[in-house]
């Protein structure tokens, strides 16, 4: 009962980060760099929190969730660096 409550709370916090980080990309006034920052909030932090919630719920499947978390962090960081580099060069 307690673990399920903690897991749902973590999932909802991650969902809040997703929502907050995804809404600024509809705004045309922000620059691409600010959008990359908020996409980092939603895609790295929120998704890692959601995976943490799943890990609390099903701890026996930790290997695949761990691989998913590591690949998520690595790919998101590298691709946001590359996109920042491209837009910085065209500035």
């Amino acid at each position: 009962m307690t673990t399920s409550f903690v897991s749902y709370t973590t999932l909802l916090i991650g969902l809040f980060f997703w929502t907050w980080g995804t809404f600024p990309i509809l705004n045309r006034e922000h620059s691409i760099f600010y959008k990359l920052h908020t996409l980092t909030v939603s895609d790295s932090v929120g998704s890692l929190l959601i995976i943490l919630g799943l890990l609390i719920r099903v701890p026996q499947y930790w290997p695949l969730l761990f691989v998913a978390a590591v690949s998520l962090a690595l790919w998101n960081t590298i691709s946001s660096y590359i996109l920042g580099n491209i837009s910085d060069r065209r500035l």
């Binding site: 909030v41 946001s80 920042g84």
Partner: peptide, 25 residues
């Protein structure tokens, strides 16, 4: 990786061989 992963700072390239060019808000 440590700088780009956190949401406040975003490395966009090397200024010269000793400094990163970092974007912040």
């Amino acid at each position: 990786f440590r700088m780009t992963f956190t949401p406040m700072t975003l490395v966009t390239g090397l200024e010269d061989s000793e400094t990163w060019r970092v974007h912040t808000v």
